[in-house]
């Protein structure tokens, strides 16, 4: 798994790549929590590069969502591959997270002020 981060106004986009499982879910969680601490309004997780996420990775997302709610920040998960979307559906996390087809959709919904910057980037 590799993680990169981009700040667009009040939103931070966390992009993950590869497999998220028991061996790296702690790092994934730390990256999400750091993004939450730095974001003014929203954190969007770009999952386009993720080809597998285990229960441990889903729990990291869950912990980040809880903190986001407590801090009054928006938290969205975007661009799931068809396979990862199936994992979300089977585990019922599709009912827990705000899911967006693409990162742009998530930005438009959760941090509209950042949309100009997103389109320019």
């Amino acid at each position: 798994m590799t993680i990169s981060e981009a700040t667009l106004g009040g939103a931070i986009i966390v992009s993950a790549q590869g497999r998220i499982d028991m061996s790296n879910s702690e790092d994934f969680k730390d990256a999400l929590m750091a993004a939450l601490a730095g974001a003014g309004a929203a954190v969007i997780v770009d999952m386009a590069g993720v080809d597998y996420i285990s229960s441990a990775g889903l729990r990291s997302l869950m912990i980040a969502l809880r903190s986001a709610k407590a801090e009054g920040k928006a938290f969205g998960v975007a661009a799931l591959s068809p396979l990862v979307l199936e994992i979300f559906t089977i585990s019922r996390f599709n009912l827990v997270f705000a899911l967006y087809a693409g990162v742009r959709d998530a930005v438009a919904a959760l941090s509209p002020d950042s949309l100009g910057q997103f389109d320019a980037s």
Binding site: L58, M62, S91, F93, L95, V96
Partner: peptide, 8 residues
Amino acid sequence: YSLAESIT
């Protein structure tokens, strides 16, 4: 339970 229920 579903995984989501069991950890929420």
